[in-house]
């Protein structure tokens, strides 16, 4: 990382039955996505960064080298976009954006000028005088972003920034948001449970489960080498933990030939589309082959996703034609195989 670290934090929040403890470093200009299932502590982490949730013993936050956790929320150089935006309903879009500059001591005219410039950047000049209830979801999202950026924060926090939008708007706002985040020179932390948002918007993913980091890396690394079932599901891979011995990884009773040479605990991952199904045992190598029972059949895009139970449980994506030809129905016994070249093994 050549860019200087802007945010250096250890977020510790203790609640009855739940503890969040995570280290987070974000460089200036970098976008980090906190990804995790519901209740993992993503929003709590964001609130702790904003100063809305107090840190427990041992936690600290520093921004550009200055301790920030000792400041109350209103004195932190932080901008936050809330999941449902929380635009002030009694103020126009312009006055919502001008609110931050006003609080920072700007005069009314100056604050409004700055707000108008921000609204222009997000393409909403013509809606400056509109009340939030007259804005569409996508417009409200952009006003919320402009409002958060108008305080000139060093740390920008986005809580599920696209979750409240419909599919079409989401596509459009996602690409716009990506552009605005690229222009922002401070650190950005965004929370999402949508892997696509994370992959498109973030330079780095931090996956948290049960209040702790389980994996982090670039979207490419995380996508290729998931380390938990949650991440594997997110990126749509079958993932197994087994034992490697040279070019072979044993998972339960199934032996996988893999392209990599490893020793010791290892992960094997492969895409559901790499799994081939047979009615009877195919000839040839006994490797990468196991007998399974179909547990479920469901539509998945243009294909059919088959849930397999057996020594290992797996997903297989097959064409509707194959389902008909092989008479794939729940309860049927099948043989499943995956090509060695389509598997990916890495140390656990």
């Amino acid at each position: 990382m050549t860019r200087p670290t802007a945010l250096d934090a250890r977020l510790v929040v203790a609640r009855p039955g739940f503890t969040l403890d995570l280290d987070l470093q974000v460089a200036a200009g970098e976008v980090v996505a906190l990804l995790g299932p519901n209740g993992a502590g993503k929003t709590t982490a964001l609130r702790a960064l904003a100063g809305l949730t107090p840190l427990a013993e041992g936690g600290h936050i520093s921004l550009d080298g200055r301790p920030t956790h000792i400041l109350p929320a209103e004195r932190r150089p932080v901008g936050m976009v809330f999941q449902d935006y929380l635009l002030f309903p009694h103020l126009s879009a312009l006055d919502n954006v001008a609110f931050g500059p006003r609080c920072q001591g700007a005069g009314r005219a100056d604050a409004r000028r700055a707000a108008a410039a921000w609204l222009e950047r997000v393409g909403l000049v013509e809606h400056a005088s509109a009340r939030p209830r007259h804005l569409s979801g996508g417009q409200a999202q952009r006003v919320a972003l402009a409002r958060a950026l108008a305080v000139r924060p060093r740390l920008l926090l986005l809580d599920e920034p696209l979750a409240a939008l419909d599919a079409h708007t989401r596509l459009e706002i996602r690409s716009q948001l990506r552009r605005h985040l690229a222009d922002f020179d401070g650190a950005t932390v965004l929370v999402t449970h949508d892997p696509l948002d994370a992959m498109v918007l973030a330079d780095r993913l931090v996956v948290i489960e049960n209040g702790a980091v389980v994996q982090q890396g670039t979207p490419g690394e995380v996508g290729r080498r998931p380390r938990t079932d949650y991440v594997a599901r997110l990126v749509g891979l079958n993932l197994y933990r087994g034992h490697a011995d040279g070019p072979q990884v044993t998972v339960e009773d199934v032996r996988f030939s893999v392209a990599e040479r490893l020793d010791g605990p290892a992960f094997v991952a492969f895409a559901p589309s790499a799994v081939a199904l047979y009615r009877s045992r195919p000839d040839g190598s006994p490797r990468n082959l196991w007998e399974a029972v179909i547990d479920g059949v469901e539509r998945h895009g243009d294909n059919i996703r088959i849930h397999l139970e057996g020594p290992i449980s797996a997903f297989a994506d097959v064409t509707p034609a194959a389902v008909a030809d092989l008479e794939l129905a729940p309860g049927r016994r099948v043989w499943a195989s995956v090509k060695a070249t389509e598997t990916h093994a890495y140390p656990a």
Partner: peptide
């Protein structure tokens, strides 16, 4: 809304 105001420096 008060929290949002706080993050904006209020």
């Amino acid at each position: 809304f008060e929290e949002a105001a706080a993050t904006l420096g209020a």
